[in-house]
Nucleic acid binder design. Structure first.
Lengths: 120, 120
DNA sequence: GTAATTGTACTATTACAAATAGTACAAAAG
DNA sequence: CTTTTGTACTATTTGTAATAGTACAATTAC
């Protein structure tokens, strides 16, 4: 059972929230290579949304090579997820750098930023 | 002359991009207290957008006390912008925290993140 | 064999927010 | 008197997300 929390307050589209969640689970290892994930219809029912929305999310994930779908068999996490992980990390590191530039531009010191990272 | 770059690829609404840009300029000091900024119609023309969109942005900025509008006189940066700067920092710190959560979710260690902050 | 489940592929429709278009008014400046 | 300012509406357009509904072929389960 996958746990996906949808936030309807968030501006991020539902299909994208699904993509992000599954990508994250793969990254962390909650979802492992070759593992089966819910069918389009099943996940749609679970989340109380339309199957087409799940389909859209799965299409994107398949395009990113995070998952692979076999007609009549179901949908599975890809064999090889390492590259996916790396690309994702690189993307998010870029975002971090941008955010740090913004903060430094506002006069925030490295010390303060590091405190946040250490959760203090 | 204010320089505002609109990114139509960005999912962020135009009116929000305007809000963010002006807030940032105030925070950094590019726009100073009591300084006049373009009229709604003028900025709309400059940016090639509808005046109503600028009006919406100005309404939000006025609500945040970043600017003050005087009918027939024009629109000005507020007298007191210190609070604005503080609020802005808090917002950006929140964004940083979010981004760090994302990275930790991807299995990135604090060490790696700190390296980025120190520009290594 | 038959029913159910799977991914896939459409079209049509609804819903919502952003953005535009247009008009109008009162007040102040030139 | 004309222009410019902020303000305040309504109506319309546009784009995208999401839903609704139907259909097909292949496979699985019984």
């Amino acid at each position: 059972m996958i746990l996906i929390n949808l936030d309807y307050q968030d501006r991020t589209p539902i299909y994208e929230q699904i993509v992000n969640t599954i990508e994250k689970y793969v990254a962390v290892g909650i979802l492992k290579p070759k593992e089966q994930i819910p069918s389009i219809r099943e996940l749609a029912t679970t989340l109380g949304i339309n199957p087409n929305t799940v389909k859209k999310a799965y299409d994107i994930l398949e395009n990113k090579k995070v998952i692979t779908s076999f007609s009549t068999k179901g949908t599975y996490i890809s064999d090889q997820t390492d590259e996916v992980l790396e690309n994702r990390k690189k993307e998010e590191m870029k975002n971090l750098k941008k955010q740090i530039e913004v903060l430094k531009g506002l006069g925030v010191t490295e010390q303060e930023i590091i405190k946040v990272i250490q959760g203090k």
